[in-house]
């Protein structure tokens, strides 16, 4: 059975709104645009570095809409004291990247 994406659709809509507010170029947000948003969470930089590694699935230095949603999901988990995993759980890989 298709593994449901861990990001709920209502959360995805919220993350998409943030994504669009950061004026993506060709549907991508570069690291310098995403960095202030994630730093806003007041999480330690090494945590954010790991969040980035896990969400920048194609390691192109930019996040697309789905990768951005993964990053936001991981940040919210970390804010609720959920440790950021060392590798991306399969349920968190966006269906578009499987």
């Amino acid at each position: 059975a298709e593994l449901a994406w861990a990001v709920k659709s209502e959360d995805k809509a919220k993350y998409d709104a943030i994504f669009d507010s950061l004026s993506p170029v060709d549907g991508f947000l570069s690291g310098d645009k995403v960095k202030p948003v994630l730093l806003n969470s007041k999480l330690p930089v090494e945590i954010l570095g790991r969040v980035w590694e896990l969400s920048d699935i194609d390691h192109d230095g930019k996040l697309d809409r789905d990768e951005f949603a993964v990053a936001m999901f991981l940040v919210y988990c970390a804010l609720e004291k959920e440790p950021v995993p060392m590798s991306l759980p399969p349920a968190l890989v966006p269906p578009s990247k499987r």
Partner: peptide, 13 residues
Amino acid sequence: QFPTGSSSTNPFL
């Protein structure tokens, strides 16, 4: 082993 992110693509490293 977690891949230590390459600073070239990671704005936090």
